[in-house]
Structure formats: structure tokens, C-alpha cells
């Protein structure tokens, strides 16, 4: 039985730019359960990024209700949001967003520092996370000594290290060539197979097809929410359209 992690009911988000109110999200409801692999798709300006920020607890909705593991996020303070981001959410960004002056190990360690994990345990867990993404031999390299794919792997290790409830990846292959992108997608697949919940935000149909479910957003509304029948499983099924 998969437990419910995210339950959103009629949330909206209104930004005020000058005197004009902009509805970034109009009325969105969705549920995401554990071990799911969900892609959120939408063109730019669709409210996709805003939705991602909501899901990632980086921002709170203007209206509606957002429950994260039965806790109401809409009512949380900044500190509580920071805690939930720290423990329950692993972020993977398009531009990797690693600390350029710190080595891979320290980058992966960082969320554990904020979680108050003692140094020895931290190092051990960070090391394990790096091994699990295939970077066991790059632990002491700094980001500028790593390739784009390796950097993204460090970022994924950083997202995994706290054993979060969801991995939230925002265009994780956007800055990578297609071959490296494919490797990263394989890694996500493996991570999902191990029981991690993944939410993938993308505007590329091909990338979205790796997930088991696609939520399409347009004009601040959920346009369609459907299971993918014929998913791409990297390394196993490689459809024609994958070769651009």
C-alpha cells in the first residue's frame, strides 16, 4: 500500500506585479503517492514553475490546501518550511547549483549539516550517496573539475542523502547533451526502482515519457493528468523518437 505524500486541493497562487494581480496558478488539485514517478509538463508561463515551487515548499499557496504527509504546508512558518525542505524534499536543478568552492563530498554533506547530523556520520552517508550515483572516485573533486553529467550526479547524491520523501527535479537534463541526459534519466529510473518518489518538471515531451505519469499544466490549471502506457525505460526500451 503506497502512502499519500502530496495532497493538493484547489490551490491558487496570485502574484501582485505593481497594481496588477497575476494568477500564476488558478485552481490546481492533485495527489502524489510514494514510489510514484511523475512528470509535470507545460510550456513556459503555464504555472509549471510556480507549481514546482509549491510542491518543493519553497513557496506557499495564496489559496487552497496543501498537505504534505498530512501536514498542512499552507500554515507553516519559514522555519518549518526549511525543515520540511531539508528532511522531505531532495532538489535537483537544471543548473546543478553546487557550491563551486566546495568539493563533491562537502556539497553532498550540506543538507546533513543543516539537519544537525554529526560530522563522522555525515561524511559516511555523503560518501555512500556519492558511491550510489557512481562517483565514489570523485569525492574530493570540486565542481569545476567535474563534467556536466558528473555535476548533476553530485546534485542527485545531495538530493538523496537525507532519504527524502520526494526527489524534485527541475529540468535535470536541460543543461546536458542527450547522451549524458540519457544517463541521468537512467539514474533517476534506478532511484525510482529503489522506492524513491520522483517528481520531474520538464518541458520536453521525450524526457516526460520516462515517468509513469504525466501532469500537464496550462494557464494555471491542470490540463491533463494521465498514466503513461508506453514509458521509456533508459537502457531497456529505446524508442525511435529518442534518436533525435
Amino acid at each position: 500500500m503506497n502512502e499519500n505524500i502530496i495532497n493538493i486541493e484547489h490551490i491558487s497562487k496570485v502574484y501582485t506585479v505593481g497594481d496588477v494581480k497575476v494568477h500564476a496558478l488558478y485552481d490546481v488539485s492533485l495527489r502524489i503517492d510514494s514510489t510514484e514517478y511523475v512528470a509535470i509538463m507545460g510550456p513556459s508561463g503555464s504555472g509549471k514553475s510556480t507549481l514546482m515551487n509549491m510542491l518543493g515548499c519553497l513557496d506557499t499557496p495564496s489559496g487552497g490546501k496543501y498537505d504534505f504527509k498530512t501536514r498542512n504546508v499552507s500554515l507553516m512558518t519559514d522555519n518549518e518550511l526549511a525543515e520540511i525542505r531539508n528532511r522531505e524534499i531532495g532538489f535537483v536543478f537544471q543548473t546543478f547549483n553546487l557550491l563551486s568552492r566546495s568539493n563533491a563530498l562537502h556539497n553532498v554533506e550540506l543538507p546533513l549539516i543543516y539537519a544537525g547530523v554529526p560530522s563522522a556520520e555525515r561524511k559516511e552517508r555523503a560518501n555512500q550517496a556519492l558511491i550510489s550515483v557512481g562517483l565514489g572516485d570523485r569525492v574530493h573533486h570540486k565542481p569545476n573539475e567535474l563534467s556536466g553529467g558528473q555535476r548533476q550526479r553530485v546534485a542527485i547524491a545531495r538530493a538523496l542523502v537525507t532519504n527524502p520523501a520526494i526527489i524534485l527535479a527541475d529540468e535535470p537534463t536541460g543543461n546536458l547533451d542527450s547522451k549524458t541526459g540519457e544517463e541521468i534519466m537512467l539514474l533517476f529510473h534506478e532511484i525510482n526502482q529503489k522506492g524513491n518518489t520522483i517528481i520531474l518538471v520538464t518541458h520536453e515531451e521525450y524526457i516526460a515519457q520516462h515517468a509513469a505519469r504525466v501532469i500537464r499544466v496550462r494557464d494555471g490549471l491542470v490540463e491533463r493528468d494521465e498514466a503513461i502506457v508506453n514509458r521509456y525505460i533508459p537502457g531497456i526500451s529505446k524508442p525511435e523518437s529518442a534518436v533525435k
Binding site: 518543493g56 519553497l58 519559514d78 522555519n79 526549511a82 525543515e83 525542505r85 531539508n86 528532511r87 532538489f91 536543478f93 547549483n97 553546487l98 557550491l99 550540506l110 543538507p111 543543516y114 539537519a115 545531495r158 537525507t162
Partner: peptide, 12 residues
């Protein structure tokens, strides 16, 4: 960097 630190759980 501050944004990243906050995203991964740094409090104010």
C-alpha cells in the same frame, strides 16, 4: 548560493 542553501534546508 543562498537560494541553494535555503532550498536544501538552511533556516533564516
Amino acid at each position: 548560493e543562498i537560494g541553494v542553501r535555503k532550498a536544501i534546508g538552511a533556516k533564516r
